[in-house]
């Protein structure tokens, strides 16, 4: 098990748990939910932010936020 921020480009993972105290509700509402598959599509040139696909949503989030999301690599 690892966290989303360490995933490399085009790696996928299943979301296991989300630290609900440090993650905004907005991210959950956009579909970042336990059980969903998240894929890293692109990492910005200076290593932050990252561009992910989850639950048919395409999002860009910073790595400090991605760190709060635990994933199981697929």
């Amino acid at each position: 098990m690892t966290t989303l921020n360490v995933l490399k480009k085009s790696q996928k993972g299943t979301i296991i748990e989300i630290n609900s105290d440090n993650v905004p509700l907005k991210l959950i509402e956009m579909g970042c939910l336990p059980g969903n598959v998240v894929e890293v599509l692109q990492i910005a040139p200076l290593a932050d932010p990252i561009y992910i696909k989850v639950n048919d949503s395409f999002l860009s989030i910073r790595k400090d936020l991605a760190k709060q999301i635990q994933v199981e690599l697929i």
Partner: peptide
């Protein structure tokens, strides 16, 4: 309020 960087990459 604390604001988070969560933006959608639209089609």
């Amino acid at each position: 309020r604390k604001s988070f960087f969560v933006i959608e990459m639209p089609t």
